[in-house]
């Protein structure tokens, strides 16, 4: 049978995109945990190697990834609570949009100052301290 016509992207709303973001952040967190388990396990092999690996993480790029990780974990956990509310709270399905916006609001509220504090050291190292 010939391939079914694919067509355009389905224009889902809050529910669909929060699900997509949940999947994406979930996969990203899985990859982090994979690397995290490996590098932490290294401390049992040799504390010296462990320290050397940790030193390679002290770069601006990894710092950015850390910010991404905190954001991903934050979104994934809050949206996880939203999904549970949809499942178990009788009125959950009716308030799913409001809950989506609440999740986004909390993520932004935490991440905007959070990014500042997490990146402060890196920015000062790269461009010099203002104080």
């Amino acid at each position: 049978m010939p391939a079914a016509p694919a067509g355009t992207l389905y224009r889902g709303r809050e529910g669909m995109w929060s699900w997509v973001a949940h999947r994406v952040t979930g996969v990203l967190i899985f990859f982090f945990l994979f690397a995290h388990v490996l590098d932490t396990a290294l401390v049992r092999v040799s504390p010296d190697y462990y320290n050397r690996i940790m030193d390679t993480y002290k770069t601006p790029v990894v710092n950015l990834m850390e910010v991404g990780l905190v954001g991903a974990v934050l979104y994934h956990s809050l949206n996880g609570l939203r999904v549970m509310a949809i499942d178990f709270w009788e009125k959950g399905p009716r308030y799913q949009k409001q809950m989506t916006y609440a999740v986004i609001a909390v993520v932004l509220l935490v991440m905007i100052p959070g990014t500042y504090f997490m990146m402060q050291h890196t920015v000062e190292e790269m461009f010099g301290s203002t104080t």
């Binding site: 389905y10 889902g12 529910g15 669909m16």
Partner: peptide, 9 residues
């Protein structure tokens, strides 16, 4: 079901 709410919409 992954509660994407596309169906409800």
């Amino acid at each position: 079901c992954r509660t994407t709410f596309n169906c409800t919409d």
